[in-house]
Amino acid sequence: MLNVQNLHAWYGKSHILQGVDFHVGEGEIVSLLGRNGVGRSTTCKAIIGEIEPQGMIDFQGENMVGRKPYEIAQAGIGYVPENRDIFPGLTTRQNLLLGLKPGQKDDGSSRWSLEDMFDMFSNLRERADVDASVLSGGEKQMLTMCRTLMGDPKIIMIDEPTEGLAPKIVHQVGELLEQIASRGVSILLVEQKLAIAMKVSSRVYVMGHGQIVFEGTPQELEENPEIRREWLEV
């Protein structure tokens, strides 16, 4: 479904991504692991077109390199940024509705409806009509993920969804990830915490210095202490 080959990207003069290769299959949950600053978030930004990459990003047979972010989003790639970016001054409901793409309606024609979101997260229903900037950290994380889902993506890239959240909320995030996958949406999960990634992923990639340094199942990573020591543990 998403096939990234030899992806390079720069921030100014620094060469951040130095030939990244990976793929995500239909309905698969794949995690991109690694320490801070190895280029995981940059990979997401390059795929969505926020920074201009070189290489190949094949999404359902079409190359996304050089397209504009809104075109890439319209093609079916969803992106949940790490800093959540809740739109201030708009209510929770309005934030969610902004996830709908141009021409898309909340009329049951897509995988997700506003009601689904409220059913999954009663907090969001209760606070549907308040300014979303007053939500708690956990609620904001749910809101950003739900907002991207409203646009009915075929694959969703989620950057550090559990960062700064209490264990109970992390568990909720995990449940949402499984719910997303059960509706046939592929997930590229960018994480620093191993626990959740190992639990939900079918495959994991480990990144180091702008390249993929390991690919395998969670089981294989579990059995490979050198990789974990060298590239993951702090």
């Binding site: 969505i48 926020e50 504009k68 972010p69 809104y70 989003a73 319209q74 992106y79 940024p81 970016d85 739109f87 201030p88 001054g89 708009l90 309005q94 934030n95 509705l97 902004l98 996830g99 793409k101 141009p102 907002r147 991207t148 646009g151």
Partner: peptide, 20 residues
């Protein structure tokens, strides 16, 4: 609403599929 959202986070609005 799209304009208001784009006042704060234009890139995120664009990533949701809006032609910012």
């Amino acid at each position: 609403m799209i304009i208001q959202a784009a006042l704060s986070y234009p890139e995120t609005v664009q990533n949701l599929g809006h032609n910012v």
